[in-house]
Computed example of a mutant assay.
Amino acid sequence: MLLRNIDTRYGLCNGTRLVITRMGRYVIEGKVISGSNVGDQIFVFRLSISPSDVKIPFKFQRRQFPLTVSFLYVDVSRVTSREGLKI
């Protein structure tokens, strides 16, 4: 599941679920399984993230993919009606 809005024009928003088809060091390939662009092949690149906390006396960056593992119970808990539930 995506954790950030990457490209809202193509439906790559926070909460979009994917099936990972290929993993590389700098990019992950996946197939969209939720939202408006179901079936699309996409590439998710690593992002450089810096903390915005001004209390930290030094600056640093980390690189990570904006993804998390999503299990069935998470998907079921996000459904707002029975008509929207597809298993």
Rank of each mutant, 00 (worst) to 15 (best):
K31S: 06
E29H: 14
N5P: 08
P57N: 01
I6G: 04
P66H: 11
S34H: 09
S36G: 10
G15S: 06
V54H: 15
Q41S: 13
G35D: 03
F45S: 12
F65V: 00
S52K: 13
R63M: 00
Y26H: 13
S36K: 14
G35E: 04
V38T: 05
P57M: 08
F71A: 10
R46K: 12
P51G: 01
F65C: 00
N14A: 09
S52M: 12
I20D: 01
G15R: 10
Q61Y: 06
L12R: 00
V19D: 03
Y73F: 15
F65T: 01
G30A: 07
V69S: 05
F60D: 00
V76P: 02
V32G: 00
S50C: 12
S36T: 15
G11A: 08
P57C: 07
R63C: 04
L72W: 10
I20P: 02
S36D: 14
L3S: 09
D40G: 07
L12M: 09
R25W: 09
I49Q: 06
S36I: 15
N5H: 11
I49D: 05
R4V: 13
R22S: 10
L47C: 13
V54C: 11
M1G: 11
L47E: 15
G30P: 01
K59P: 01
S48D: 13
R62P: 01
T21P: 04
N37W: 08
G39P: 02
F45L: 14
E29M: 12
V44Y: 09
R22P: 08
I56G: 05
T21V: 12
Y10D: 13
R9P: 00
V19M: 11
P51Q: 03
V44I: 13
D7C: 08
N14M: 07
N14K: 09
R62S: 03
R46W: 01
Q41I: 13
G30H: 05
L18V: 08
V74K: 06
K59W: 03
G30K: 02
S52Q: 14
L2A: 11
D7V: 04
S52T: 12
R4W: 11
Q41P: 00
R17A: 14
F71C: 09
S48T: 15
P51Y: 02
Q41W: 05
L18P: 03
T8P: 09
Q61T: 03
F71K: 10
V38A: 06
M1W: 12
V44L: 04
I6C: 09
L67K: 02
Q61A: 05
D53T: 03
N5C: 10
R63S: 04
P66R: 12
F65R: 03
F45A: 14
R63I: 00
L67T: 08
G24M: 08
E29A: 12
R62T: 03
D53H: 03
N5K: 07
R63N: 01
F58E: 02
S34C: 02
D53K: 02
K31G: 04
G15T: 06
L3K: 05
S52W: 10
L72E: 08
F43H: 10
E29Q: 14
G35F: 08
N14Q: 08
F43G: 06
V74N: 06
M1N: 10
L12A: 03
V32N: 07
G11Q: 04
S50I: 12
V54S: 15
L67D: 05
